[in-house]
Amino acid sequence: MLLSLAPLTVSLAALGFANAQTAPEELSSSLEGYDELSLFRSLLSAAPQALSTSLSGKTSNITVIVPTNDAITAYLNESKVSDVTELNIDDIETFFSYHVLVASLKASDFGDHTVVPTLLQGEEYNNRSAGPQLEQEFGSKATGQVLIATKRTDTSRRTKRQKLSGPTVDVRAGLAQDAEMTAVDGKWGPKNVNTFQIVNKVLIPPRTCSTTIRGQGDKLGALDSSLNKTELYPTLDTTPNVTCLAPSTEAFKKAGNPHQSLSKADLTGALLAHTLKQVTYTSFLEDGMVLGTYNDTTVTVHIKGDDIYFNNAKIIEPNVLTNNGLLHILDAVIGPEDETSSTSTATASKTSADSTSAPASTSTSDSSTKDNAASAFSISYPGAVALAAGLLIF
């Protein structure tokens, strides 16, 4: 039986390779009527093998996000080249991989902060695993780096060219880049099983935590100083599957600038208390969920209307993607869970799989004074430096 199956296996592999080889031509043909996409077609023509390699045999049930001419021109300028033919082949493969989604998606498939895997692999851009929610929705092989997509409620966007009209979807890529995608729901490929959408920027793949945090400038300047002081960056950059709960610089100020006053050990423990042991995209968070941190404490998720809190701290910028997870930027330093919280009684049944126990109750409120906030931030964990050194074993 094994011998009889072998030729079938080879023929299926050959078929997948053949389909990958024809995909660039099929996609280019489907884009012929879109004048604003001519540079993308030129890129397909100049480096068809790069797209074929990026597809890795997955030629059906995919969505290609196609940047406009203006987007590619800006990308070329930033790359300091004048023509698509001058781009490095590795960069082109990365470009294609991050612009191909693992499912054929239409405008109706994008909701609020929809997490969609791409074909982008490789630890440099994707040092994380899919997790059960993404595997359930897209399959076990949907392990590539993600984009976050949110369909606008103000329906359609219309440009000078009629064919570039359709619902607008906001797309979050790496380095907190935000782009506008026009959902034209274009069809291509055998039996039109694939789709393409149009975006106004070339999407930037996620980078390390340090690059991402520093890219936020003054907004996360105090956090950057803290991670430098504690020497946690090398570990944070290389540990897979983490969420950094990142107080803004203004939040540090409200807490009395503890990054300047705390010892290295205490500050290390405090930062580990703001680092979750899993990737937590906002679309997968639930009210009352309890999540474990790297200093063996927990934080509780509270959802109040459109706002999401970790204990007392509200997310002011969600889903800032990194290559190993993401950041949520917060308006406050996280303090102990409020014993009187209206949602605290519901946490027991929603404890995250990797959490151990509920946080110790302390009488604290959202209107804590600056001194109380600083005290909450300075909660130390004995052996925090040793724990930080051991982060990589998880």
Rank of each mutant, 00 (worst) to 15 (best):
L8C: 13
L8T: 12
A13R: 14
P24W: 03
S28L: 03
L44C: 06
Q49G: 11
G57I: 14
I65Y: 07
L76C: 10
L105R: 07
V115D: 07
V116M: 01
V116D: 02
V146P: 04
I148T: 06
D154H: 11
Q162I: 10
S165V: 00
V169R: 07
E180G: 05
P190I: 12
V193I: 12
K201R: 15
K201V: 01
N228W: 01
D237I: 10
T239Y: 02
T243S: 09
A251C: 01
N257H: 13
N257M: 10
L267T: 07
H274G: 05
H274W: 08
Q278K: 11
Y281V: 06
T293I: 04
N295P: 00
V299K: 13
K304N: 11
Y309K: 08
N311S: 12
K314N: 05
E317S: 14
P318S: 15
V320S: 04
L321R: 04
G325K: 03
L326H: 10
L327C: 05
D331S: 03
S342R: 10
S344A: 14
T345H: 12
S349Q: 09
S349P: 00
S352H: 14
S355I: 02
S361E: 06
S363A: 15
S363G: 05
S375E: 14
A384W: 09
I393A: 12
